[in-house]
């Protein structure tokens, strides 16, 4: 479970990239993070990945409390996370296989494990046949899938995706989404930042909506108020296997109770 309590982030003092953000996302849930450009989506993901530190507030994942996390343990935290970026950040001096193998090498996996896992991850994103191509020889969608394979190859508990469908056409975006949903279905907590309105309409998942650094909405519906957000947040799910349908149900019921 990802928990944010009154989290603020100022890159430059006085200018809030995120302001007093509170929410909790149950383990295994699939959630969209939306908002206009500059709303703070990437910043929020960076806070989770510990690429930035909040200037105020409290963040935790499962039992890991970010306040007491020692700097030397931060790399270990990141090893347990999958991160997918819009610009997929593949290394063009080595094969797709070696790109996907990198997190496993960093994690100190054994050679046989590495081969099996990379093969399995590439199989899963449908790129087994391109394992020994250079990433630049692949199409944009294929490259993005390599990025996803690299993010999931070490079987992370949390998958953060920042505009994973960035400049891909609708059909390929849908394929990428299917992939991410598969991981969610296998118990991975997935948080996808996107401003792709088409995706948000096609896939009916809970949404966290940011506006100017503030969390204004935590549901599909644009009518939801800040008050709803607080109600939802006060009773976070304690069940790790909670699925997005359950969150939705709960949100609906809490809204009914208003």
């Amino acid at each position: 479970m990802i928990r944010f309590e009154n989290v603020s982030l100022e890159y430059t003092p006085g200018r809030f990239a995120l302001h007093d953000v509170s929410f909790s996302q149950p383990a295994g849930a699939f959630t969209f993070l939306t908002g206009h450009s500059g709303a703070g989506k990437s910043s929020l993901l960076k806070l989770i990945a510990r690429l930035e530190k909040p200037t105020a507030g409290f963040i935790s994942i499962d039992t890991i409390d970010y306040d007491t996390l020692k700097p030397r343990h931060e790399p270990l935290l990141r090893q347990q996370m999958g991160i997918v970026f819009q610009d997929n950040q593949l290394l063009n001096d080595r094969s797709v296989f070696d790109n996907v193998a990198l997190p496993l090498i960093i994690g100190g996996y054994r050679y046989n494990d590495i081969k099996k896992r990379v093969a399995a991850a590439l199989e899963r994103v449908g790129l087994a046949s391109k394992a020994f191509e250079l990433p630049i020889r692949l199409s944009g969608g294929e490259q993005q899938r390599v990025g996803i394979a690299r993010a999931v190859v070490a079987k992370p508990k949390v998958l953060l995706a920042d505009e994973p469908t960035g400049n891909l056409d609708a059909q390929i975006s849908a394929e990428i989404m299917q992939l991410l949903m598969q991981f969610s279905a296998s118990g991975v907590t997935v948080l996808v930042a996107t401003h792709d309105q088409g995706l948000l309409e096609t896939f009916d998942f809970p949404q966290l909506t940011l506006h100017g650094g503030k969390l204004v909405d935590i549901h599909n519906s644009s009518q939801a108020t800040a008050h709803t957000q607080n109600t939802w947040q006060e009773q976070p799910s304690s069940q790790p296997a909670a699925r997005e349908s359950r969150i939705k149900r709960r949100q609906t019921s809490s809204r009914h109770g208003e």
């Binding site: 094969s95 296989f97 070696d98 193998a101 496993l104 090498i105 100190g108 050679y111 590495i114 081969k115 099996k116 990379v118 093969a119 399995a120 590439l122 199989e123 087994a128 046949s129 394992a131 020994f132």
Partner: peptide, 22 residues
């Protein structure tokens, strides 16, 4: 079967074993 093919491909063409340690 495809999965196995991928595996054999991987073992055939992945770099030498020693290059996968720190």
């Amino acid at each position: 079967r495809t999965s196995e093919t991928a595996l054999t491909n991987a073992s055939l063409a992945a770099g030498p074993k020693w290059t996968y340690t720190h």
